[in-house]
């Protein structure tokens, strides 16, 4: 299996390290031609406006959507969640818009309100062991459609959601060495 990491901007290195830890090969994706031969794509954390603009400039957005229709899975963390969402509250920024979720950007607040959390309410392996997570100027998923499955929740908010071959987290497992979310994504692709 080979996983692409969208490398236009953001914490690309940390996702590559996660994949290395799980012994999966990775390719950096900056142009449409890099999408050939990958089974899944990770959209890292970063600035969603920046990544969205840069995706549109070289037709990566259309290429990613088309590869997804042919079966490529996508996992978006934080900025990735925003880029996957059909609806971004109060924003018309460029996006992929292929997941039936509605998100509000920076909804916990600014950097002073960024937080680390141990997420107990999850359906990943080792259910008794909380998920380590960093929420950095994170979005909040406000609404999900019936086709979406909540895989983890913090309080009343879904923070890890799956829709068929799409997975999205509002937090960063890759910053705190939490490999179970990436493992789950790889499992989705098998």
């Amino acid at each position: 299996m080979k996983i692409g990491v969208l490398a236009l901007q953001g914490d690309v290195r940390e996702h590559v390290q996660m994949l290395q830890a799980l012994q999966v090969g990775s390719v950096l994706v900056t142009l449409p031609e890099h999408l050939g031969g990958i089974d899944g794509l990770i959209i890292p954390g970063g600035e969603s406006t920046t990544i969205g603009l840069l995706m549109a400039r070289y037709g990566l957005d259309k290429a990613v959507i088309s590869r997804h229709k042919q079966g490529m899975g996508i996992f978006g963390t934080c900025a990735g969640a925003i880029l996957l969402a059909k609806d971004i509250l109060g924003s018309s920024q460029p996006r992929l818009g292929i997941m039936d979720i509605s998100v509000a950007r920076n909804d916990y607040g600014r950097q002073a309100d960024s937080f680390e959390a141990a997420i107990k309410d999850h359906r990943l392996e080792l259910p008794g062991k909380p998920l380590k997570a960093a929420f950095i100027r994170a979005p909040v998923i406000k609404k999900i459609s019936d086709g979406c499955k909540v895989v983890a929740k913090l309080g009343n908010s879904p923070v890890l959601v799956r829709q068929h071959r799409l997975l999205t987290s509002t937090f960063h497992p890759e910053l705190v060495g939490e490999t179970r979310v990436h493992k789950y994504f790889l499992g989705m692709l098998r």
């Binding site: 954390g45 960024s114 909380p130 309080g155 960063h172």
Partner: peptide
């Protein structure tokens, strides 16, 4: 939810900078 969270950690401070990588 409230009891299990930590703010202002060094990890979070460094973490925001990690998110800015590759950017201007």
């Amino acid at each position: 939810m409230k009891s299990e969270i930590a703010k202002g950690t060094y990890q979070l401070k460094k973490g925001l900078a990690e998110m800015l990588k590759g950017g201007v």
